[in-house]
Amino acid sequence: MLQLEGVSVTYPNGVRALSRTDLGFAASQFVVLLGPSGAGKSTLLRCLNGLVPPSEGRVCADDLGDIHGPRALRTHRRRTAMVFQHHQLIGRLSALGNTLTGRLGYHPSWRTLFPLPRADRLLALECLDRVGLAERALTRCDNLSGGQQQRVGIARALAQQPALILADEPVASLDPATARHVLGLLHEICKADGIPAIVSLHQVNYAREFADRIVGVADGGIVFDGPTAELGEEHLAQIYGSPAAMARGARPASEGRAKVSAGPPSEVALSETPMSKTA
């Protein structure tokens, strides 16, 4: 469905955010890009809709080929919705106003100088209803809570009637209970509508809970790629650097990890793994 072919990204300030990467995404999977902050997950995701142009290589969509040039980019972005870590909403606009941003790609520039058609408004309201915010449709977004704002972000993505959803750390700015709820909602909608999703996360427990496939990212490269069940201790160590760092990043997933390693299930024992290995 979407292919990265030898893609690397070096930013103008000389930082190499992504080293040569080949990666393919198939339809209808919930893929999690797992890795610590600064590993290159955001850059990788933004390559997938052209927000960050690759320095080398190309990003190909099934029917469009290389997504390059304004026409292909617009077509590709219209059907590839994105959910952002910081919601990226306009605080002064209502939830409905922000959701309608998802419809801009479907109209020529002159048309959107006028209010959008009734059909678009109805669709946007339906999308808000799916995230449970139909009642708040006319509330200014800066009067909504963090969790509600991110649900508006998801509604805006759904309003694009997307063939793919990209989500960049969608729950990193939320408290754990809200994060779990919002991520669950995104997962549920994607599964119900058969929309494939590529979601970047840094929490191992969420990745294990929701992902069909996990792509481990570390230092701008792919260090693991496989079904969720195959993600083991050694892969986490690679993704998060040291086992100690991994234990910190993965603490809430201790049960899942205990099964894999078949070791003592307590966290203390796990974080002492390196010592027992050297001993």
Binding site: T80, I90, L104, S109, T112
Partner: peptide, 23 residues
């Protein structure tokens, strides 16, 4: 940030100005 969101949704330059910057 909202400008990036509008661009990611396929908005044109004029749409970004009118729908993401002006508000």
């Amino acid at each position: 940030k909202p400008i990036e969101a509008a661009r990611a949704a396929g908005a044109t330059g004029l749409q970004v100005i009118h729908r993401a910057i002006l508000p």
